[in-house]
């Protein structure tokens, strides 16, 4: 059983890390967003392995569902930048690589050098400690959604409310930032217009299509 769990853990770790590496290295930004979704799903499976079922479901709903879709929409609303030919990394990307590797080493070295016994005894003590008499929840050694609900409604009521206000502020702020006056809206050609124009005039770039579709361009043709 332990070996099986270890194998599953290593498979999930490989999935998470390889997907993350693909997210930061792949050229096409849409592929990067899809790899990001794979990484999120691997993290959700890791939460399930750690017996945090509620967090796993929340991870799938919010990260793999909402945030990935939001990122894909943002990519599709910003054209001209997803192509394979566009350079995706800075010229001095290796500086970032060095910084990241240094950070990883700085985290890893104390982890390897420190004595494991101290932590292991703490972990063992935590597993055998009796659960505090939780109010309405059935007795369990691992906290579940019942404990989360009680905690949010009792001990963490203020953070809960602050989080809801934060979400409201983010919602209003996102609408205000992304909103655009109707009069100033740029004319975006539909796919049919784009195809028809590409057949009629030999356009090289997408900017030519927009120029042809603008009022001045129409008068000219």
């Amino acid at each position: 059983m332990n070996t099986l769990i270890m194998v599953i853990f290593f498979a999930l770790a490989a999935l998470i890390l390889i997907s993350a590496v693909m997210v930061v290295t792949v050229k096409n930004i849409i592929h990067a967003a899809l790899w990001l979704t794979a990484s999120f799903l691997g993290a959700a499976a890791l939460y399930l392995l750690m017996e945090a079922e509620f967090l796993a479901v929340v991870q799938v709903l919010i990260y793999a569902g909402a945030i990935s879709i939001l990122i894909l929409f943002a990519i599709m609303l910003t054209r001209h930048v997803t192509g394979e030919g566009v350079r995706q990394l800075y010229e001095r990307w290796w500086v970032a690589l060095v910084v990241a590797i240094l950070l990883f080493g700085a985290v890893l070295v104390p982890n390897l050098l420190s004595e494991q016994a101290n932590w292991d005894s703490q972990v063992a003590a935590a597993q055998t400690a009796p659960a505090p008499p939780a109010a309405e929840c059935p007795p369990a050694t691992v906290a579940g959604s019942c404990e989360i609900g009680v905690a949010f409604m009792r001990d963490y009521l203020l953070p809960f409310e602050v989080a809801s206000v934060l979400l409201l502020v983010a919602l209003v702020g996102a609408i205000v930032i992304a909103h655009e006056e109707r009069a100033r809206r740029r004319r975006v050609p539909t796919l049919a217009e784009e195809v028809a124009l590409k057949r009629s005039i030999p356009v090289e770039r997408d900017e030519d299509i927009e120029a042809a579709l603008s009022p001045a361009g129409r008068e000219g043709t």
Binding site: I16, L17, A20, V21, V23, V24, I29, S39, V81, R87, Q88, L89, Y90, W93, V95, A96, L97, V99, A100, I101, L103, F104, V107
Partner: peptide, 14 residues
């Protein structure tokens, strides 16, 4: 995972 994310946040142009 954190280090990979840090590399992505520092090196991507997009």
């Amino acid at each position: 995972l954190f280090s990979i994310g840090l590399f992505g946040a520092l090196s991507r142009r997009n």
